[in-house]
Design a protein around this nucleic acid. Sequence first.
DNA 1: AGATTTGTCAACCATTTGGTTAAACCGTTT
DNA 2: AAACGGTTTAACCAAATGGTTGACAAATCT
Lengths: 203, 203
Amino acid sequence: MPETVNDTEKQIFDAAIKVFQRKGMAGARMQEIADEAGINKSMLHYYFRSKEKLFRQIFLISLKKFIGSVVPLLNEQNTWEQKVPLIIEYYAKFLTENPDLPFFVLSEIRNNAEEFLSEVKIEDILINSVFMEQLKNDMGKEKIRRINPVQIFLSIISGIIFPFIAKPMVKHVAKLDDNSWNEFINERKDIVSGMVINYLKQF
Amino acid sequence: MPETVNDTEKQIFDAAIKVFQRKGMAGARMQEIADEAGINKSMLHYYFRSKEKLFRQIFLISLKKFIGSVVPLLNEQNTWEQKVPLIIEYYAKFLTENPDLPFFVLSEIRNNAEEFLSEVKIEDILINSVFMEQLKNDMGKEKIRRINPVQIFLSIISGIIFPFIAKPMVKHVAKLDDNSWNEFINERKDIVSGMVINYLKQF
DNA sequence: AGATTTGTCAACCATTTGGTTAAACCGTTT
DNA sequence: AAACGGTTTAACCAAATGGTTGACAAATCT
């Protein structure tokens, strides 16, 4: 029992991820999680004590997944210029597979979970990444525009994450169906990549 | 009584805006709105019938404010290149004054309010704006990169809105206090503006 | 097999929450 | 001043919701 997680527990956990990420802490219902997991509501409390406790676990794992999973990419052995499209490509795929995750994380952080940010040490992970060092390095050599590297990273993720966050509105305004949405996102990847790289190099 | 709105009604409305925008439909409590307005809870139902009805009004006015207020700027008599920084400047100011509004609107649209999008006819308003026409025009003359104008507009608002949506996380990662946050946003305005204009002109 | 622990469930409980009611308040009309 | 209409409030109600309990089943141990 040490590492192999109980089957019921995992079913609850997976169901909770689905429901919490879609509805948020306030909108999620314990009964709905139980139904989604196909088990009795009492089991939720048996395994996780309370909604608060269950939420905390779901939130933390979501937060780590959201920010932690790019880190390997940032630290790979290639140039920053090669990394940019790879980061974008990665996030586009990630967001397609986890459409509710970023919104959920950002939402709950706004509400009350700001303290969680310290638990996952994003600051250092990001700031000290090879990607950031490479940017600073090339800035020092006057090869690219001198600018706060956080702004560059923020530009990348803004450009690709925001369209997913605002997906219903974007689809509506640009009159996209599911197929043309994918096309739109493919186009978007190149644009964001081009904008960032262009901006750094042309100055 | 035809146009002057009842004082109590306005107080409720203002309180509801505050609470709904901060907590969302699911997280908002009628009692909290009443407290915020400093009146008895029954008054909410007296003036607005139900939470659903009250929410609908708040949401619609928020949606219109979010997308409608930028339209005049898009249709002004200046070049697209002059408009870009003005749009960004406008949104930065707007977001500072209404920090919870965009998140609220995007959140509720995701949840259930997608149908509202049709009521406010953003598609046409945006697509047919002078700004969009100017872009298409210059694209036709090969003066700027040929690209879906919606992508350009999306790049602008992504770049400036997303940092506000993710404000707690951005502040944490970039280690900003309230003062340096303002500095960061000022820097950001120029970056987004520069990126978009650069990208369109350099190709 | 019998005892003991662990897991599961239906029924129940207490609180919260959106909503209602009936009485009171108050300015206006007659 | 009495009657009237819109406004406001405290008390109340019913449903929803997070959580608990006690019985029972299913493994696990001896």
